[in-house]
Amino acid sequence: MSDVSYIRRPNRLLQIYACIFLIVLYVPVLFIPLFSFNDSIYVRFPLQGFTTNWYADLMRRDPLWAALMNSLRVGLSVAVISTFLGVLAARAITRYRLAGQNALVAFIMLPLVIPGIIFGVALLVLMSRMGVPLSLYTVALGHLIVCLPFAVATLLPRFEGFDRSMEEASADLGENPWWTFWRVTFPIVYPGVVASFLLTFTISFDEFIMAFFLSSTDATLPMYIWSQLRFPREFPSVLALSSIILLVSFALVFLALRIGRLGSVRKPGAGSNGAD
Protein backbone atom coordinates (compact mmCIF):
# COMPACT_ATOMS: atom_id res chain seq x y z
CA MET A 1 0.00 0.00 0.00
CA SER A 2 2.76 2.39 0.91
CA ASP A 3 4.08 2.54 -2.65
CA VAL A 4 0.80 4.01 -3.88
CA SER A 5 0.30 7.73 -3.37
CA TYR A 6 -2.66 8.85 -1.31
CA ILE A 7 -4.69 10.13 -4.21
CA ARG A 8 -4.19 6.93 -6.23
CA ARG A 9 -5.10 4.50 -3.46
CA PRO A 10 -7.84 2.20 -4.79
CA ASN A 11 -11.25 2.79 -3.27
CA ARG A 12 -13.39 -0.37 -3.37
CA LEU A 13 -16.65 1.43 -2.59
CA LEU A 14 -16.14 3.90 -5.38
CA GLN A 15 -15.41 1.11 -7.85
CA ILE A 16 -18.63 -0.72 -6.97
CA TYR A 17 -20.60 2.50 -7.28
CA ALA A 18 -19.06 3.15 -10.71
CA CYS A 19 -20.02 -0.34 -11.88
CA ILE A 20 -23.62 0.00 -10.73
CA PHE A 21 -23.80 3.42 -12.33
CA LEU A 22 -22.69 2.10 -15.71
CA ILE A 23 -25.00 -0.92 -15.51
CA VAL A 24 -28.07 1.17 -14.72
CA LEU A 25 -27.13 3.55 -17.49
CA TYR A 26 -26.51 1.08 -20.27
CA VAL A 27 -28.39 -2.18 -19.60
CA PRO A 28 -31.75 -0.82 -20.81
CA VAL A 29 -30.04 0.34 -23.97
CA LEU A 30 -28.44 -3.06 -24.47
CA PHE A 31 -31.87 -4.74 -24.49
CA ILE A 32 -32.60 -3.08 -27.81
CA PRO A 33 -29.93 -4.88 -29.85
CA LEU A 34 -30.59 -8.04 -27.83
CA PHE A 35 -34.25 -8.25 -28.82
CA SER A 36 -33.56 -7.08 -32.35
CA PHE A 37 -32.03 -10.52 -32.96
CA ASN A 38 -34.87 -12.36 -31.19
CA ASP A 39 -37.08 -14.56 -33.38
CA SER A 40 -40.42 -13.33 -32.02
CA ILE A 41 -42.55 -10.23 -32.43
CA TYR A 42 -43.00 -10.03 -28.67
CA VAL A 43 -40.37 -8.38 -26.55
CA ARG A 44 -40.17 -10.76 -23.61
CA PHE A 45 -38.05 -13.45 -22.05
CA PRO A 46 -37.24 -16.22 -22.68
CA LEU A 47 -35.61 -15.43 -26.02
CA GLN A 48 -36.98 -17.50 -28.87
CA GLY A 49 -33.93 -17.94 -31.05
CA PHE A 50 -31.52 -15.98 -33.21
CA THR A 51 -32.63 -14.30 -36.42
CA THR A 52 -31.53 -11.49 -38.72
CA ASN A 53 -34.95 -11.32 -40.38
CA TRP A 54 -35.81 -8.00 -38.79
CA TYR A 55 -32.72 -6.45 -40.33
CA ALA A 56 -33.49 -7.97 -43.71
CA ASP A 57 -37.02 -6.65 -43.37
CA LEU A 58 -35.68 -3.09 -43.01
CA MET A 59 -34.12 -3.31 -46.46
CA ARG A 60 -37.52 -3.71 -48.08
CA ARG A 61 -39.13 -0.60 -46.61
CA ASP A 62 -39.05 2.37 -48.95
CA PRO A 63 -40.56 4.92 -46.49
CA LEU A 64 -37.71 4.09 -44.11
CA TRP A 65 -35.08 4.87 -46.73
CA ALA A 66 -36.85 8.08 -47.59
CA ALA A 67 -36.89 9.05 -43.91
CA LEU A 68 -33.22 8.17 -43.60
CA MET A 69 -32.36 10.38 -46.56
CA ASN A 70 -34.39 13.21 -45.04
CA SER A 71 -32.57 12.87 -41.75
CA LEU A 72 -29.19 12.81 -43.46
CA ARG A 73 -29.99 15.93 -45.48
CA VAL A 74 -31.23 17.82 -42.45
CA GLY A 75 -28.38 16.53 -40.29
CA LEU A 76 -25.65 17.47 -42.73
CA SER A 77 -27.04 20.94 -43.40
CA VAL A 78 -27.52 21.62 -39.71
CA ALA A 79 -24.03 20.36 -38.93
CA VAL A 80 -22.44 22.56 -41.59
CA ILE A 81 -24.41 25.69 -40.73
CA SER A 82 -24.21 25.40 -36.94
CA THR A 83 -20.48 24.64 -37.04
CA PHE A 84 -19.89 27.59 -39.37
CA LEU A 85 -21.91 29.92 -37.14
CA GLY A 86 -20.20 28.40 -34.11
CA VAL A 87 -16.76 29.21 -35.57
CA LEU A 88 -17.78 32.82 -36.15
CA ALA A 89 -19.26 33.12 -32.66
CA ALA A 90 -16.31 31.46 -30.92
CA ARG A 91 -13.85 33.62 -32.82
CA ALA A 92 -15.74 36.82 -32.06
CA ILE A 93 -16.06 35.92 -28.38
CA THR A 94 -12.39 35.09 -27.94
CA ARG A 95 -10.88 37.63 -30.31
CA TYR A 96 -12.67 40.86 -29.50
CA ARG A 97 -13.59 42.47 -26.25
CA LEU A 98 -17.33 42.71 -26.77
CA ALA A 99 -19.67 44.74 -24.62
CA GLY A 100 -21.73 42.41 -22.46
CA GLN A 101 -19.69 39.41 -23.48
CA ASN A 102 -20.74 37.17 -20.59
CA ALA A 103 -24.39 37.93 -21.24
CA LEU A 104 -23.86 37.10 -24.89
CA VAL A 105 -22.31 33.71 -24.13
CA ALA A 106 -25.10 32.93 -21.66
CA PHE A 107 -27.64 33.91 -24.29
CA ILE A 108 -26.08 31.60 -26.88
CA MET A 109 -26.06 28.72 -24.37
CA LEU A 110 -29.64 29.31 -23.24
CA PRO A 111 -31.32 26.80 -25.62
CA LEU A 112 -29.43 24.08 -23.72
CA VAL A 113 -31.69 24.55 -20.72
CA ILE A 114 -34.96 25.58 -22.39
CA PRO A 115 -37.14 22.48 -22.88
CA GLY A 116 -37.33 21.42 -26.51
CA ILE A 117 -41.09 21.21 -26.36
CA ILE A 118 -41.34 24.92 -25.55
CA PHE A 119 -39.05 25.83 -28.42
CA GLY A 120 -40.98 23.49 -30.67
CA VAL A 121 -44.34 25.02 -29.84
CA ALA A 122 -42.93 28.54 -30.07
CA LEU A 123 -41.44 27.90 -33.50
CA LEU A 124 -44.61 26.20 -34.69
CA VAL A 125 -46.67 29.23 -33.66
CA LEU A 126 -44.18 31.57 -35.27
CA MET A 127 -44.11 29.62 -38.53
CA SER A 128 -47.86 29.37 -38.84
CA ARG A 129 -48.24 33.08 -38.00
CA MET A 130 -45.77 33.96 -40.70
CA GLY A 131 -47.43 31.58 -43.09
CA VAL A 132 -44.31 29.50 -43.62
CA PRO A 133 -45.34 25.98 -44.67
CA LEU A 134 -43.86 23.20 -42.56
CA SER A 135 -41.15 21.26 -44.34
CA LEU A 136 -37.69 19.85 -43.81
CA TYR A 137 -36.47 23.47 -43.83
CA THR A 138 -38.45 24.29 -40.72
CA VAL A 139 -37.15 21.10 -39.09
CA ALA A 140 -33.62 22.18 -39.93
CA LEU A 141 -34.27 25.60 -38.44
CA GLY A 142 -35.46 24.01 -35.21
CA HIS A 143 -32.44 21.74 -35.12
CA LEU A 144 -30.16 24.68 -35.73
CA ILE A 145 -31.41 26.29 -32.53
CA VAL A 146 -30.82 23.07 -30.62
CA CYS A 147 -27.36 22.48 -32.11
CA LEU A 148 -25.82 25.94 -32.04
CA PRO A 149 -25.07 25.93 -28.30
CA PHE A 150 -23.36 22.56 -28.67
CA ALA A 151 -21.28 23.85 -31.56
CA VAL A 152 -20.21 26.94 -29.61
CA ALA A 153 -19.51 24.91 -26.47
CA THR A 154 -17.28 22.55 -28.47
CA LEU A 155 -15.46 25.29 -30.37
CA LEU A 156 -15.00 27.87 -27.62
CA PRO A 157 -12.24 26.05 -25.71
CA ARG A 158 -10.35 25.56 -29.00
CA PHE A 159 -10.44 29.24 -29.79
CA GLU A 160 -9.71 30.23 -26.22
CA GLY A 161 -6.49 28.27 -26.38
CA PHE A 162 -5.61 29.89 -29.67
CA ASP A 163 -2.57 32.12 -29.40
CA ARG A 164 -3.08 35.29 -31.38
CA SER A 165 0.63 35.68 -31.99
CA MET A 166 0.36 32.64 -34.30
CA GLU A 167 -1.62 34.70 -36.79
CA GLU A 168 0.73 37.63 -36.34
CA ALA A 169 3.69 35.37 -36.98
CA SER A 170 2.08 34.18 -40.19
CA ALA A 171 1.41 37.75 -41.34
CA ASP A 172 4.95 38.65 -40.37
CA LEU A 173 6.26 35.82 -42.53
CA GLY A 174 4.44 37.26 -45.53
CA GLU A 175 1.06 35.54 -45.69
CA ASN A 176 -2.06 37.64 -46.20
CA PRO A 177 -5.16 37.06 -44.03
CA TRP A 178 -6.66 34.51 -46.45
CA TRP A 179 -3.60 32.28 -46.48
CA THR A 180 -3.03 32.87 -42.78
CA PHE A 181 -6.48 31.47 -42.08
CA TRP A 182 -5.91 28.37 -44.19
CA ARG A 183 -2.30 27.70 -43.22
CA VAL A 184 -2.42 28.54 -39.51
CA THR A 185 -5.81 29.32 -37.99
CA PHE A 186 -7.79 26.49 -39.53
CA PRO A 187 -5.25 23.69 -38.95
CA ILE A 188 -4.95 24.68 -35.31
CA VAL A 189 -8.70 24.80 -34.62
CA TYR A 190 -9.60 22.00 -37.04
CA PRO A 191 -10.05 19.24 -34.43
CA GLY A 192 -12.66 21.41 -32.73
CA VAL A 193 -14.40 22.00 -36.04
CA VAL A 194 -14.60 18.29 -36.82
CA ALA A 195 -15.81 17.51 -33.30
CA SER A 196 -18.49 20.18 -33.54
CA PHE A 197 -19.58 18.88 -36.94
CA LEU A 198 -19.96 15.29 -35.77
CA LEU A 199 -21.68 16.27 -32.54
CA THR A 200 -24.25 18.56 -34.16
CA PHE A 201 -24.91 16.01 -36.89
CA THR A 202 -25.61 13.33 -34.28
CA ILE A 203 -27.89 15.61 -32.30
CA SER A 204 -29.90 16.58 -35.37
CA PHE A 205 -30.05 13.01 -36.60
CA ASP A 206 -31.55 11.75 -33.31
CA GLU A 207 -33.75 14.74 -32.55
CA PHE A 208 -37.47 14.05 -32.17
CA ILE A 209 -39.40 16.85 -30.45
CA MET A 210 -38.53 19.66 -32.88
CA ALA A 211 -39.14 17.36 -35.82
CA PHE A 212 -42.46 16.33 -34.32
CA PHE A 213 -43.71 19.92 -34.24
CA LEU A 214 -42.06 21.26 -37.33
CA SER A 215 -42.16 18.53 -39.96
CA SER A 216 -44.94 17.97 -42.47
CA THR A 217 -45.34 14.85 -44.61
CA ASP A 218 -41.58 14.36 -45.02
CA ALA A 219 -40.69 12.38 -41.93
CA THR A 220 -37.24 12.26 -40.41
CA LEU A 221 -35.96 8.95 -39.13
CA PRO A 222 -37.03 9.43 -35.50
CA MET A 223 -40.46 10.48 -36.80
CA TYR A 224 -40.65 7.31 -38.86
CA ILE A 225 -39.76 5.18 -35.85
CA TRP A 226 -42.43 6.94 -33.83
CA SER A 227 -45.03 6.24 -36.50
CA GLN A 228 -44.12 2.54 -36.59
CA LEU A 229 -44.54 2.08 -32.83
CA ARG A 230 -48.31 1.99 -33.27
CA PHE A 231 -48.07 -1.38 -35.03
CA PRO A 232 -46.94 -4.18 -32.68
CA ARG A 233 -45.89 -6.32 -35.66
CA GLU A 234 -43.43 -3.69 -36.75
CA PHE A 235 -41.81 -3.43 -33.35
CA PRO A 236 -38.89 -5.85 -33.84
CA SER A 237 -37.93 -4.00 -37.03
CA VAL A 238 -37.95 -0.77 -35.07
CA LEU A 239 -35.61 -2.43 -32.60
CA ALA A 240 -33.33 -3.46 -35.43
CA LEU A 241 -33.33 0.06 -36.83
CA SER A 242 -32.72 1.54 -33.38
CA SER A 243 -29.76 -0.77 -32.89
CA ILE A 244 -28.18 0.47 -36.08
CA ILE A 245 -28.78 4.09 -35.13
CA LEU A 246 -27.34 3.45 -31.67
CA LEU A 247 -24.21 1.96 -33.13
CA VAL A 248 -23.66 4.77 -35.61
CA SER A 249 -24.40 7.47 -33.00
CA PHE A 250 -21.99 5.92 -30.54
CA ALA A 251 -19.33 5.72 -33.20
CA LEU A 252 -19.81 9.34 -34.22
CA VAL A 253 -19.79 10.76 -30.70
CA PHE A 254 -16.76 8.68 -29.82
CA LEU A 255 -15.01 9.93 -32.92
CA ALA A 256 -16.00 13.52 -32.13
CA LEU A 257 -14.63 13.32 -28.60
CA ARG A 258 -11.50 11.59 -29.81
CA ILE A 259 -10.75 14.21 -32.44
CA GLY A 260 -11.70 17.03 -30.09
CA ARG A 261 -9.10 15.83 -27.66
CA LEU A 262 -6.42 15.60 -30.36
CA GLY A 263 -3.86 18.30 -29.97
CA SER A 264 -5.17 19.51 -26.64
CA VAL A 265 -3.33 16.68 -24.85
CA ARG A 266 -0.08 17.91 -26.33
CA LYS A 267 1.88 19.86 -23.81
CA PRO A 268 2.31 23.51 -24.82
CA GLY A 269 6.05 23.50 -24.20
CA ALA A 270 8.67 21.14 -22.90
CA GLY A 271 10.26 23.54 -20.44
CA SER A 272 13.37 25.55 -21.04
CA ASN A 273 16.08 23.54 -19.32
CA GLY A 274 18.01 23.34 -22.50
CA ALA A 275 18.97 20.09 -24.11
CA ASP A 276 21.36 22.10 -26.22
Binding site: S165, S170, G174, E175, T180, P187, I188, G263
Partner: peptide, 30 residues
Protein backbone atom coordinates in the same frame (compact mmCIF):
# COMPACT_ATOMS: atom_id res chain seq x y z
CA UNK B 1 2.58 43.43 -41.99
CA UNK B 2 2.74 40.73 -44.67
CA UNK B 3 4.31 43.10 -47.20
CA UNK B 4 6.93 44.68 -44.93
CA UNK B 5 10.62 43.87 -45.36
CA UNK B 6 10.88 42.95 -41.67
CA UNK B 7 10.57 39.73 -39.72
CA UNK B 8 9.99 39.24 -36.05
CA UNK B 9 11.00 36.85 -33.30
CA UNK B 10 8.06 36.81 -30.90
CA UNK B 11 8.36 36.82 -27.15
CA UNK B 12 6.73 33.39 -26.91
CA UNK B 13 8.36 32.40 -30.24
CA UNK B 14 4.95 31.64 -31.84
CA UNK B 15 6.18 28.36 -33.31
CA UNK B 16 3.30 26.81 -35.29
CA UNK B 17 2.27 23.77 -33.24
CA UNK B 18 0.84 21.82 -36.19
CA UNK B 19 4.06 21.93 -38.23
CA UNK B 20 7.44 20.36 -37.67
CA UNK B 21 10.64 22.38 -37.46
CA UNK B 22 11.34 22.22 -41.20
CA UNK B 23 7.84 23.37 -42.20
CA UNK B 24 7.94 26.09 -39.58
CA UNK B 25 11.16 27.45 -41.00
CA UNK B 26 10.01 27.08 -44.61
CA UNK B 27 6.66 28.73 -43.85
CA UNK B 28 7.54 32.07 -45.42
CA UNK B 29 9.14 30.48 -48.50
CA UNK B 30 5.83 29.43 -50.06
Amino acid sequence: PYLRPVNMVFQNYAIFPHLNVRDNIAYGLR
